[in-house]
Structure formats: structure tokens, C-alpha cells
Design a protein around this nucleic acid. Structure first.
Length: 424
RNA sequence: GGAGAGGUGGCAGAGUGGUCGAAUGCACCGGACUCGAAAUCCGGCAUACGGAAACGUAUCGUGGGUUCGAAUCCCACCCUCUCCGCCA
């Protein structure tokens, strides 16, 4: 959520920056809501003051044994008008809040302007795509060839966009997650956390806009619970409604979890294989930081995600998303894209964002410096990395002509020393 | 699933219809004393919104209700704890 003070004092500038990311701010509606709010709130507060004063006088009169009847009559008149106004004031507050809660974050000044993914800008590239002396197969064929990746059985169990893994590939999938968790906890200073895989609507609304994106989530029938689309949802909400001590920051959490996404609106997109699934595993990095540290933290967090790809020796490039391609809550986002030889393209494997105070304001996540007022914290997160897509990248980049797949050296300790997956 | 207890400020904990946004203690901040520290003493110390300010309004788990007036009474819900049952 944006700071309403910013809208009151700098409306034109805010409208302009929102337009850059393709959001058409309804100026008239906002000004009307504000005018109504001022009118109803001011009048209601005056009447409340009068009511409180009368109540006090009545109490004093009764204590002295005087007749309170005239005061009671006046109080009744005030309450008649007040009931109506309080309702109107509450209603306009609610509408104002709804209006604000679906406005996306402002892009940071370092974010390039642009309309869509075509306007994203590459900031760096690491590793050279391997040249194959045979036609590389995609991960579906590699996995099926090994007899370890099975989409037919998955479809029988749950329909499209699910997968079943067996044997070495299932173990490799687990090894990838273990390796990432160990690296981030032992080398990057994150605390491992285990969390609920469902969260309340309030938590969902803290990190994003439930009103806007509820169709992307799986909801538990008859309950106010949603399957998490990323561990960001539960982990960032650790600090909801908290006032943290400044010296406890930064908080750095790493969480391995499954992620559930309805992929509504993605029909026909990436239907083959496990690139886009209703359920996938991800190792998520979350940081809660002081405002002046957030851009430094963002660079570090992105580097932590990139470090995994370097250790796995997978070629990647890092893109800064343009204003038009960023997510709802983000002020700045880097996407890390891994090389997939079968697609002859770089594909997203991580997304690292700085949300500044946008989520913190929605969640009321604050911290207090020495003898200061509570201030909103800044929140950051990024995939470090998507486990399913990392598996895809390994199957494709490390495949051999005979159909076997070499295990990247850093994963071998997690594979009981196995160096290669072959058809049993 | 059954029975009971409870949710008040950073923490602990009073308050059961009216000068209560809330005693007291701890923590914290400022000051006095001291060469300095400790101890002691004095003062300050919730959040949000509106207002230039004075100040006003709201908030005692959440939402309704009763009342001129609710932390306090009533109803519903949520959460925590204890006991019994069941269970991975």
C-alpha cells in the first residue's frame, strides 16, 4: 500500500510514476473520496466530542444528585445525528482503503521504463552455454528416457500441471533443495524456517492484494485459508503487527516449501513438462531490513541466488525488470534466467524484489530505533532458487548423448556420491 | 470431540458502568547527586487519524449489541492455556 500522505501532498508525481508501470490512477475518484472523508470524519468527530462532554456532565450531575433530564435530552439529539454520520464516515474510510489497497507500488528511480518483458534490461551474464555434439533433448524426454519423470501418472492423480518423479530424479530434486538450504544457512547467514503451507486471507493481503489476485491462489473450501503460492506469504508475515528492535535487523530467513498456483490465465502456456506447475518446490530468501539498507540488501540477496547457479555451473543472465513488467508490490525486481538448451533460451529461475515499505505498510511491520517512533521496515525476497526449474536446468544442461545425466559435483555429496543418473 | 480458565501498554500486572488511555512494578529516555559508576531522587515514556498549534477523535483479542456513558454488562467469533478422549 502506498503512503496516503504522499498522495495528499504529491498526487501528480505519484500519478505520473504509476502511469510508467501502466497503472491508470483515478484522480477524480480519489479527490472525491478524500473530500467525503474530511467532511464526514470532521463532523463525526465533533459530534463524538459533544457526546463525550455530555456523558461526562451527566455523570457529574448524577453524582451531585441533580436532575439530568435536560442533558439526557440533548445527548439523545446528538446521538441521533451521530449514528448516521459514524456510518457514513466508516463507509468512506472503507472505500478509501479499498481504493488504496489495489494500487501497485511505485517503481524505484533506478528501474528502466518500459511496457513489458521486451523492455527488461540485462545487467550481467555468467557462464557460456555448452555446445552439444548431439541434439539436446528437453527435460521431459531426458526424464522419461531415464524412467524417472512421469507426467501420465501425475495426470491420473491430479490432472494437468503436476509431475511424478521416481528414483534418481526424485532424489536429485531433494538434493537440490538440501544443497540450497545448506548454502544459504552456512554461507549467506540465513536462518532456516519451516512454515504453514496455508495462510489466512489477511496474510495474503499483507504481501499482495487478495482482492486483485485471489484467482491465482488455491483456496481451502469453507475456510479463510489459501495454499501458499510462495513461502514469501508465510515468512514475510512473521513480522506482521510487530514492532521490532532496530538492533534485531536485518532478519534473514530461508525457507524450503512447496508452492501452489492456479495458473489461471496461463492456459496453453508452457504446457509441456515441469516449467509451469500447479505445485512446485522453492527455496525462498526473505529479508526484513531498515529502509536505508534495503537496496544494498536487494543486491546481496540477488547475489545469494546467483551464487547457487555459479556453484551448479549453470549459465545464467540477470535482468532488471522494467516498470511495466514488475509485480504488484515490487519497487524493483531482478529476474535471474537460466539457460535451457532445448529451448535455446534463458528462462526465469528466480525473481528477487525490494518492496520497500509497501508490504510493511499493509502488514504494519515496524521497527523502533533508540528512543524513536516506530518506523515501517523494508521487506525483500527472492527465490534462491526454484527447485523444479533447477532440476529442469540440470537435466537439460548436464545430459549426455547416451541419455544419462551427469550430477553436478556440488550435489554429489547429497546423492550418496552418485556421479551420473542412468536408466536402471 | 467434551469440560474449564484466560486474552489490558515493550514486558509483568491492577482495574467489573462515569473525571480510565488506563494504577503499580520492570525495562527504556532525560535530568539531579557523583571524579566516574552503582544506588537514590525528579521528570518523561502506547498507536493511528485530523489539526499550523492548542487540542480533538478512535483503539483494552475481533465484530456486533445494551446505555446519556463500556476495558468493565450481553451475544457471536478468533486465539492461548489446563484436563479428558482420540490420533500421525
Amino acid at each position: 500500500m502506498l503512503d496516503i500522505h504522499q498522495l495528499r501532498t504529491n498526487l501528480d508525481a505519484v500519478i505520473e510514476r504509476l502511469a510508467e508501470r501502466g497503472y491508470a490512477f483515478d484522480r477524480e475518484a480519489f479527490l472525491l473520496l478524500e473530500a467525503e472523508r474530511k467532511q464526514f470524519q470532521g463532523r463525526a468527530q465533533d459530534l463524538q466530542a459533544a457526546r463525550n462532554a455530555h456523558a461526562k456532565k451527566i455523570g457529574q450531575a448524577k453524582a451531585r444528585g441533580e436532575d439530568a433530564a435536560p442533558l439526557l435530552a440533548e445527548a439523545a439529539a446528538i446521538n441521533g445525528e451521530l449514528g448516521d454520520l459514524e456510518g457514513k464516515a466508516a463507509d468512506v474510510q472503507l472505500r478509501l482503503h479499498e481504493f488504496l489497497s489495489i494500487i501497485p507500488n511505485l517503481p524505484h528511480e533506478s528501474v528502466p521504463s518500459g511496457r513489458n518483458a521486451d523492455d527488461n534490461v540485462e545487467v550481467r551474464r555468467h557462464g557460456a552455454p555448452r555446445s552439444f555434439d548431439f541434439a539436446p533433448r528437453d527435460h521431459v524426454d531426458v526424464g522419461a528416457g531415464l524412467g524417472m519423470l512421469d507426467f501420465e501418472t501425475a495426470a491420473k492423480l491430479a490432472g494437468a500441471r503436476f509431475s511424478v518423479m521416481r528414483g534418481g530424479v526424485a532424489r536429485l530434486h531433494r538434493a537440490i533443495a538440501q544443497f540450497m538450504l545448506d548454502t544459504h544457512t552456512e554461507q549467506h547467514g540465513y536462518t532456516e524456517v519451516y512454515v504453514p503451507y496455508m495462510v489466512s486471507g489477511e496474510c495474503a493481503n499483507g504481501v499482495s492484494s487478495l482482492a486483485k489476485f485471489k484467482d491465482d491462489l488455491f483456496k481451502i473450501e469453507g475456510r479463510d485459508l489459501y495454499l501458499i503460492p510462495t513461502a514469501e506469504y508465510p515468512v514475510t508475515n512473521f513480522v506482521r503487527d510487530e514492532i521490532l528492535a532496530a538492533d534485531s535487523l536485518p532478519l534473514k530467513f530461508v525457507c524450503h516449501s512447496p508452492c501452489f498456483r492456479s495458473e489461471a490465465g496461463a492456459y496453453g502456456k508452457d504446457t509441456r513438462g515441469m516449467i509451469r506447475q500447479h505445485q512446485f518446490d522453492k527455496v525462498e530468501l526473505v529479508q526484513i531490513v531498515e529502509p536505508e539498507q534495503s537496496y544494498l540488501g536487494h543486491e546481496e540477496l540477488t547475489a545469494h541466488a546467483e551464487a547457487i547457479l555459479k556453484m551448479l555451473e549453470l549459465p545464467y543472465r540477470t535482468m532488471v525488470l522494467c516498470t511495466g513488467d514488475m509485480g504488484f508490490s515490487s519497487a524493483k525486481t531482478y529476474d535471474i534466467e537460466v539457460w535451457l538448451p532445448a529451448q535455446n533460451a534463458y528462462r526465469e529461475i528466480s525473481s528477487c524484489s525490494n518492496f520497500e515499505a509497501f508490504q510493511a505498510r499493509r502488514m504494519q511491520a515496524r521497527f523502533r530505533r533508540e528512543k524513536g517512533k516506530p518506523e515501517l521496515a523494508h521487506t525483500l525476497n527472492g527465490s534462491g532458487l526454484a527447485v523444479g526449474r533447477t532440476l529442469v536446468a540440470i537435466l537439460e544442461n548436464y545430459q549426455n548423448a547416451d541419455g544419462s545425466v551427469t550430477i553436478p559435483p556440488v550435489l554429489r555429496p547429497y546423492m550418496g556420491g552418485v556421479e551420473k543418473l542412468s536408466r536402471p
